[in-house]
Design a protein around this nucleic acid. Structure first.
Lengths: 118, 118
DNA sequence: CACTCATATGAACAAGTGTTCATATGATAA
DNA sequence: TTATCATATGAACACTTGTTCATATGAGTG
């Protein structure tokens, strides 16, 4: 066994710290999870995802629904698409967006639930 | 019944849009949820929360564990405390932080789970 | 083809955020 | 008291992010 874990090199610490250290995820994993949550960390994106919970909607509808510019919505949809949180379907001039999978809705509900309880 | 919902004032839209419109949350609710997720949207905060999953840790331990400055960690703990995601307990010179409630861990796990599946 | 409509995108700007460095606070020990 | 240790905090800075405005793309229509 290596010597006990220290941080400031001046005192010993909770033995728990060493245990936790071995269970930490990789940096990449943390960055990945952070990026995921970042998507839910903006009210505009949140409104878009919430609006798409029931069924697919076109960009124009979404924009009106959440009271934002078509441009702003399109920019955000691009970001959401990049994070694979939404998918789209083209129908003529119109593009319909929808949630990519059930996980998205689960995370969303979890957040809302947490807030409602406070 | 009011007239059908329109956005660009030039064409009619999915009737679904109108239904969804009536189910939207208030702006304040969306901002609240966004602020919550924002806390999970930074890898440093994520590492802190993850480290606290098992037991309370002092600032010094956390800093070493995630390889960050004591100052940086302290600043983030302040933010996390402000969002009521962590609580603290003082013991002499040392301050021990821990997760505020089970909800925090649930959201955290949900995010990690989503990433692992991709 | 030209024209319209729905959507996408690029550049610019303002606002927000996380880290660093220096320093302050507050508790303990000598 | 003074010294030391753990933590907190303020200011400055670089970096990121979301919106706006103008314009481009691309599909449909006449």
């Amino acid at each position: 066994m290596a010597k006990a874990f220290e941080c400031c090199e001046t005192h010993h610490h909770h033995p728990a710290a060493e245990v936790v250290k071995n269970r930490m995820l990789s940096d990449d994993e943390f960055f990945g999870v952070a990026d995921l949550f970042k998507m839910f960390g903006d009210s505009t994106r949140l409104k878009i995802l919430y609006a798409l919970q029931r069924e697919e909607l076109c960009v124009c509808d979404i924009a009106d629904l959440i009271g934002m510019t078509q441009s702003a919505v399109s920019h955000q949809l691009r970001v959401l698409k990049g994070s694979r949180l939404v998918k789209y379907r083209r129908a003529g001039k119109t593009v319909f967006y929808s949630l990519a999978d059930d996980h998205v809705q689960t995370i969303l509900s979890q957040g809302i639930e947490h807030i409602e309880e406070l």
